[in-house]
């Protein structure tokens, strides 16, 4: 009997490894697992203080509902890829606030006019200083801030549709 268990051990080990890899893959497409990414230091921390033309940290805290903050720029090609996903997300009733990163206001407006404006509020971070406080590694980058002003989740790079759906589901729940 012992020998039988021993012979089944490789199967069990392979099964565990396979389950782990499956979770990694599904995490990669939903944005919960990123083997290459640098973890954000902001997770489960209060959002950094900032005051930009458009909105301030106090506005985010005072919103009374979770806010999804998206750093983007008109000069960023992946942001164009991401635009339809964000529009769909805002249609699903998610409060999306945008921060235009190192971008001329006219260029930002043209970008939003062309690819659709999913943002309920828009701030402009032309010098890119606020992005440094947030630890933004590149555009686009998306953060979820809860009503208490705590950063709960971050996604670096264009949001895949699965990740957007997971996010919408999480906010509805």
């Amino acid at each position: 009997m012992n020998r039988r268990w021993l012979l089944a051990a490789p199967l069990a080990a392979a099964g565990l490894a396979g389950a782990g890899f499956w979770r990694m893959l599904s995490g990669m497409s939903s944005g919960n697992f990123d083997p290459r990414g640098v973890p954000s230091m902001l997770i489960d921390k209060p959002l950094p203080d900032f005051a930009l033309p458009g909105f301030t940290a106090a506005d985010v805290r005072a919103a009374g509902h979770p806010v999804v903050i998206n750093f983007f720029a008109s000069w960023c090609a992946p942001c164009i890829d991401e635009a339809p996903t964000l529009v769909a997300l805002s249609r699903a009733g998610v409060a999306l606030w945008g921060i235009a990163y190192k971008d001329k206001p006219a260029a930002t407006d043209a970008f939003l006019a062309r690819h659709g404006n999913p943002f309920t509020r828009l701030a402009r971070d032309e010098p890119g200083v606020v992005a440094i406080d947030w630890g933004v590694t590149g555009v686009p980058e998306t953060y979820l801030v809860d009503p208490k002003g705590i950063v709960r989740w971050r996604f670096s790079g264009p949001l895949p549709i699965e990740a957007a759906q997971a996010l919408a589901g999480r906010l509805r729940a």
């Binding site: 039988r4 012979l7 089944a8 490789p10 199967l11 392979a14 099964g15 396979g18 890899f21 499956w22 893959l25 599904s26 990669m28 497409s29």
Partner: peptide, 24 residues
């Protein structure tokens, strides 16, 4: 491409899992 990864993982599960099952 994670989507391709899922297909290959399924394939591996069948081949490796199946063969280890036969082995057990």
């Amino acid at each position: 491409d994670p989507a391709r990864g899922v297909f290959i993982l399924g394939l591996l599960a069948v081949i490796i899992g199946g063969s280890l099952l036969i082995f057990a």
